[in-house]
Design a protein around this nucleic acid. Sequence first.
DNA 1: AGGATTCAGTGAATCGTTTAAGTAGCGTCA
DNA 2: TGACGCTACTTAAACGATTCACTGAATCCT
Lengths: 339, 339
Amino acid sequence: MAVPERQKRRATIRELAEYTGLSPAAVSYALRGMHVSAETEERVRAAADELGYEADPIARALRGGATAVVGLLVGSLADFWNQELVRAVERELHVSERSTLVADADGDSTRELELAGRLVDHRVDGLIVLPVGPPSDGWELIAEEVPTVTIGDALPGVMAVGEVVFDNNRGVEDTLRHLSSLGHRRVAVLSWAVETSPGRPAERAVEEVAAALGLDCRIVPCAYSLNGSRPLALELLSADDRPTAMLCMSDSIAYGVCVACAELGLTIPDDVSVAGFGEHPMSRLLAPPLTSTAWDVERVAQVATRFLLDALDGERPDEPRRELFPPRLVARASTGPPP
Amino acid sequence: MAVPERQKRRATIRELAEYTGLSPAAVSYALRGMHVSAETEERVRAAADELGYEADPIARALRGGATAVVGLLVGSLADFWNQELVRAVERELHVSERSTLVADADGDSTRELELAGRLVDHRVDGLIVLPVGPPSDGWELIAEEVPTVTIGDALPGVMAVGEVVFDNNRGVEDTLRHLSSLGHRRVAVLSWAVETSPGRPAERAVEEVAAALGLDCRIVPCAYSLNGSRPLALELLSADDRPTAMLCMSDSIAYGVCVACAELGLTIPDDVSVAGFGEHPMSRLLAPPLTSTAWDVERVAQVATRFLLDALDGERPDEPRRELFPPRLVARASTGPPP
DNA sequence: AGGATTCAGTGAATCGTTTAAGTAGCGTCA
DNA sequence: TGACGCTACTTAAACGATTCACTGAATCCT
């Protein structure tokens, strides 16, 4: 009922034109309510329903129109939070009748740009990006060609139509203060690779806060995933002067650290405290439940798609629209006083 | 270097033709190594490199060629295992230079078919489906139009080119035997909605094994997600004759059950045993670690894409190629003797 | 009333590629 | 020699929509 019967071969605009006794052009206009009398418009619409006509997105795209496809370029799909975001964005785009072309840069900034290009080649109407790579010239060209929204961190110098920004700095500060107030002094920060766009500012934030609180912070670059952090954690935690707390810049990273702790026979938080970042639904279920910093995935997805869709049917804003998401520290049992 | 310089406007085949002094047709042939002398082919290829020419996938698609886009239709993206599968499939497709159009049916079988249609409209070269819905006529049309591979459960009557099948029955049997051997008699099975394609056979498997083992099994339909199972579990576990074990047909479902247990003050496995299905990387980290049944996501993704890609550049097999993945029971601390 | 403007709709070009059909030029073979 | 078949191309017609430039009729203004 709701879904129109699926034809063997779709009706074309020419067939619809013949059926209504109009020219293809008139039909095209009618369907978008331009240029024609109300009566014909109605008639064409009815005929379109009857024949189950829907404009072919590919043909439309070739001519330069919209494809109803949005590209979603994810820095690392191995990251659980990012996976959640993909789901949320896909859902948001679905309500606006759009499809989602997903690409995973897998932590590689070269691949990231290459994929962005590929998405553009497929004529996506817009691009939502969770960047890994450092800002590069390539992005300017991309963002110029197709409306782009960044999530997580802006790409400086790139003319995005929207920027959904996490207040990572405050997140880092809150967590470090939390750890400091518990008595920790030696903290390892497992961060995104430091040369990435989120990495650099986060690194500075860590350094500033550490200085202010008198913490001995060591920043260690780390891949997003569980498997990326485990070996690193094994190494860090086997050292004689092992840190008393680990701040992981993603919950996925923290999960790998938990595994490493288990393997080394270390108890969390008695032997070492672990904190995540970007709370994943699973984190409350860990043993012990993981301290983390929460951002509302659904709202992030909503705002990002809103920015993009507004840019798609209005004109592009002169300046990126921007929304800053404050962190919410969720203190749980994985952080406690140092041994 | 590796990535060709991104032009402001892409070179067209006409420009390339002019550049080489050939006709567009000759260029088109040359680039696909048909019909032309070796010398011209070489010359055209060189010119293409020089101009950074790459055929426009949209124009190609309109004419009826391939788009290098594969549709991935997921029954429920809220399910963590499925999220992992999306990542793995995306990665596999990337190595063959293809992009992935992801659609989430969100547990709704009507939406599932509608989305399949939308993917076909976008001229995906092929379709990989993790079905939720019961087999329906719509699928036959879809599978006829575009090569389709099913994952998880075949769609009977649908001419897929490949079927990646989980041996759910044996998985159910193994788990129920495991529970039975621990001494359980009253087991609740939180399953996919029973009318779905995986639901029905799984239900029968449960009934048979339960009868053989003398178990009192109650099958409860349940949405895939953590949030779907929590309220259900709260209800089931508050009853006087509450089950001593819960078999959850997805780890995501199990996670919700764990939350419910915590809320009710029930200890796992002392008060109630919990088992998942389709192991997620997180499950070993829970408190207590979750008993589950593992399938290798990476291999599943590999086989599924292999089936599809083979069908894309060879001809379609007369009969679906098929691979059955046996389960691997991972017994952990979340299952123990009944109270 | 006559010229200008709007309205409703048509015809044809266009987007960038593929491919069926056609055409030279050349060699082969009866 | 002429029929035939190759090879290496070219020409032109798709694919399915959008849109620019028109046209004929009706309406408007002074």
